[in-house]
Design a protein around this nucleic acid. Sequence first.
RNA 1: GCCGGAGUGGCGGAAUCGGCAGACGCGAUGGCCUCAAAAGCCGUUGUCCUUCGGGGCGUGUGGGUUCGAGUCCCACCUCCGGCACCA
Length: 792
Amino acid sequence: MDGYDAHSIEKKWQEVWETEQAFHVDDPTPGEEKRPRFYQLEMLPYPSGHLHMGHVLNYTLGDVVTHFRRRTGHEVLRPMGFDSFGLPAENAAIREGGNPLEITERNIASISNQMRRMGWAIDWQRVVSAHEPTYYRWTQWLFLEFLRNGLIYRKEAPVNWCPNDQTVLANEHVVDGRCWRCNAIVEIRNMAQWFFKITAYADELLADLDTIDWPERTKKIQTNWIGRSEGAEVLFRVEELDLDIPVFTTRPDTLFGATFFVVAPESPLVDRLVEGTELAEEVRGYARVAGARPTEEREQREKTGVFTGRYAVNPVNGARIPIWVADYVLMEYGTGAIMAVPAHDERDREFAEAYDLPVVEVVSDDGTLVNSGRFDGEDWQQAKRSIVEWLGEHGKGSPAVNFRLRDWSFSRQRYWGAPIPVIHCDACGIVPVPEEQLPVLLPEVDDYRPKGKPPLATNEEWINVECPQCGGPGRREADTMDTFVDSSWYFLRYCDPHNAEAPFLREKVDAWMPIDQYIGGIDHAKGHLLYSRFFVKALNDWGMLGFREPFQRLFHQGWVKLAGKRMSKSQGGVSPDQLIDQFGADPIRIYILFQGPADQDIDWTPDGIEAMVRFIRRLWRVVGDAARQPESPAGVDTPLARKAHETIRRVTDDIGRRFVFNTPIAAVMELVNELSKTPEDPAARFAAETAVSMLQPWAPHVCEELWGVLGHSRLWESPWPSFDESKLQRDTIELVLQVNGKVRDRVQVPAGLPEAELIAQARASEKVRSFVDGKEERRVIVVPDKLVNIVI
RNA sequence: GCCGGAGUGGCGGAAUCGGCAGACGCGAUGGCCUCAAAAGCCGUUGUCCUUCGGGGCGUGUGGGUUCGAGUCCCACCUCCGGCACCA
């Protein structure tokens, strides 16, 4: 047997798997399933030119789970696809010439090739790419369903505009006031945009977090983002105008302390309040200037405001309180108007101090109400309920819930995305493209650069069509869809990827979904992971599928860092291709998971990967030696055999229950070390087989080869090794002897000795005696088969 | 400010239910093999003291519970992440 040659081995087995389509899985036939199903998925990649180390970690992690589940008797669906619409390809086309389609397809070919070189166990017959008409046809179809069900609307609204990418961004993709892609400072613009009514599901998106097995911190991110507040809606009356203005408050108990009233500068109320009064000009002028300031500036500046000349009536005490317009009230939250309680709200107090407005304390330090009429003396928490109740009885308010979550704006003024399938008609308004005309194909354009209007709008031939309803002149929608729409349902398409009649068959989706294990970056916590949950809930409501959550279990891999910085497609970093050339895929796969828990960040070092090459070479030698030993007799019971059984127990538990992937490698290393020390042990072959079999999910190529050396074949579909509980029983154990909780000695004793016997063993120890002699023994603690602690 | 997560050797990390802290690996260092190198093999490697038998100290800091705490409780410090003029 020659030395270890990663490249020839890897090429050989990759060809076998390709020829056999070894990791393809058939659609389940109802009633005939032999094995339990397992849907393993990692977030699909964006097809930039090549993989980066973050991908390597992500997909190797999924690969280990895939192999483990396959070999423990599951039917495993592990597909792959490409999030192939989106800005980078379009920007590359603008920068370098060429067109986004060609660039994207070239990238997909190259990245697929790299995936094969990594040896990942993918069902290559189910590949799906967002930019293919066979896929986006159904994205468009789903758009029309959402529209029909009232979950999509078009509205003129203040939206986030990235001046660099020349497009609108969703709230979820503005990070610290900047564009998540290009880092440009985002502006607010008023534009007619398309929205998904995700807020319709706000309550459920929050409540159902309890039903899924996700990391706490991810649930927390979504919880914060949804931002549910419980309180009351209270009506304040402007008598002169015969107008009731609702406000939302989380503190109805402080209602008697409301000494003034504030309206947001952008609120349409401003006009109504001052119309025809002598203050009209001043107030409108202020509102225009204040409302136009960027949010960032508004946060930092001192609060400003003007009096409108109008008064509102506080419903609980009839007090007439002045109405102001001020920039610290936001139009986007609540009703765009507030009752101000300066005694119990820091912002209101700040404003009251600046403008010399009255402050009335209504909750005393001990938490009971004062200056609150009939509610005086009530505990403030009790008062929340009783005041709302009173308001209800008098038709002045009711319990209310408010959310931070905004609707998802998903129209983009760029080229490389799925066209939005509607037609604008002067006579009929917005008209959906009839289903039989789908897909609305993305046309060629001369210039991908957005110049004030979306690139599609420049293609006159494409944009001008007949209205499907009245036959009059119509214009196609020129905005395209955010790629997050594509990725909100791709995991469903994998279940039925070639369906030409529907996005998917419910029966197939219900058989595989929900995803048993989803793996991807935590950066998608409030974007993709929220949108997909929304999609599934809506589709379930329409009867298209039979579950309410897409991702039953979720895991976030850490970041691979180079000199403290995240490695990603945009930052270059270490190229997996070069590493495969230099070391082979198996050492990289082991390395990336051996560094630590997979959810923790990794600092890339080349030393580590060389160590993995050394380990594989060592394994190669040791297994080669073991292969020349006679077959291990059945039920062989030597220390080496026991070590092998113990290793099976550890590794199986680590992957299956604990979901850790570094310690199993250490466990196999221990077994290999043990084997190399006792190469002639009768259990040598058994130990070698065990080590190779269990390392296979990490290093499938070299393990397959070594499996052959040991006289077996087709490890990738061989059952996972099982351990014999009885082999784990020891005849002798090492008893730890402590004095006052400190370890003083260790002795070998037969297992299962009674307490008295163990104490006698402890007292017999010279070392123990040297600490105990001459002192008074106060207590003796015994942990059977483990430890004796003498307290003096 | 509110909410979540994390702090263990020179480094990455292990210790799963309160019971031997530092598994496994990197790095360092001494030796073997070799003309030499590569590869490989055998030692040492938390820290301080040591008469070389051992002993003291040690898991961010300070307290506590316990026979016994990296692990549980309280307070604090530092770092990372989420939300933030959200009424």
